Computed example of a mutant assay.
Amino acid sequence: MSIPQMNEKGLLPVGVHSCTLDEAESVLCWNDHRASLWCKLGDVLNEFRAQSFPRAPLFVDGSYVTDKPIPSDVELLIDLRSADDLIAGKVVLYCQRNHLRLRTDMLVDFYPVLQGGNDFASFFQYVGEKTACTKGLEAKDKKGILRIDSW
């Protein structure tokens, strides 16, 4: 497990790159702003633990997983595709009730990935309009994201 170097456009190479929380922190927290966002992400994960969320894989993405010095937030997905319906429902309800608070107060934009639902993990591998404009790419170009299996 290791995170590859970002390419010349400041993005991870295409694919899902597995890493630990410590590895992600060591690569992504290269200034005070990014370290502050990482602390907020840690607070969100502590909330998840307090809610007894399953320790399902997490995907971390957004401008936080680029060379952008001052990203606005951290995109976080929890992969519930193998969770039973009761547990997945609990996480979805939590997300619905807390999404705005997590996004505005904690600067973490949180989404569950559900069996048969939107595949946000694939969706977030597209560069998107904003990044495409700033990096000279097409919105449908692909980039890498991080997967954290143990938290």
Rank of each mutant, 00 (worst) to 15 (best):
Q96R: 15
L11I: 03
L137R: 00
S26L: 13
C19H: 09
L37F: 00
G136Q: 04
L41A: 02
G117P: 11
D119E: 13
N7A: 09
D73V: 02
M1Y: 14
G15V: 07
E23Q: 15
A139W: 00
C133W: 05
A56I: 06
H99F: 01
V44E: 03
G62R: 03
R103I: 07
I145T: 00
L93S: 13
V16E: 00
E129M: 01
A56N: 11
K135A: 09
L107V: 09
D109Y: 05
T20M: 10
I3Y: 07
M6I: 08
F120M: 14
V44P: 01
G116H: 14
K68T: 08
D22Q: 13
H99N: 05
C133V: 10
R103F: 13
L11N: 08
K130R: 08
F53G: 03
D61Q: 04
A83W: 05
T131Q: 01
Q96L: 12
H99I: 04
A24E: 14
L41H: 05
E47N: 07
D141S: 07
G15S: 06
N98M: 09
Q125T: 04
D119P: 13
Y126E: 10
L28C: 11
S2T: 10
R97M: 15
P69R: 10
V16R: 01
L28N: 08
S2V: 07
H33D: 09
P112R: 11
K135D: 08
Y64V: 13
N31M: 13
N118Q: 12
S36W: 11
I70W: 06
A88Q: 14
N31R: 13
G116S: 04
M1L: 12
M1F: 11
K130T: 03
L102S: 06
K130I: 05
A35N: 11
K40H: 12
I78E: 10
F124V: 11
G128F: 08
E23P: 03
C19I: 05
Q96C: 11
L28W: 15
G10M: 03
V113Q: 04
L77C: 14
S150W: 05
N118H: 15
P13E: 02
L12P: 00
V113N: 07
D119G: 12
I87A: 06
L114I: 10
D32R: 10
Y94R: 01
C39W: 14
D84F: 14
T104M: 07
H99G: 15
F48C: 00
W38N: 10
H33R: 07
K130Y: 02
E129C: 00
F53E: 06
E8A: 15
E8I: 04
V127H: 02
C19R: 13
I148S: 01
V127Q: 02
V127Y: 04
L28I: 15
L93N: 09
L77T: 11
K90C: 02
N31Q: 08
H17W: 11
Q5A: 14
I70N: 06
S18G: 12
K90E: 12
R55T: 04
P13D: 00
T66H: 06
P4S: 10
V60H: 03
G62P: 03
K140I: 11
H17R: 08
V91E: 09
E23T: 14
D32F: 10
M6T: 07
R34E: 08
L93V: 14
N118W: 11
V92H: 14
E138S: 03
G144H: 06
Y64Q: 11
G116D: 03
S18V: 00
F59A: 12
E8R: 08
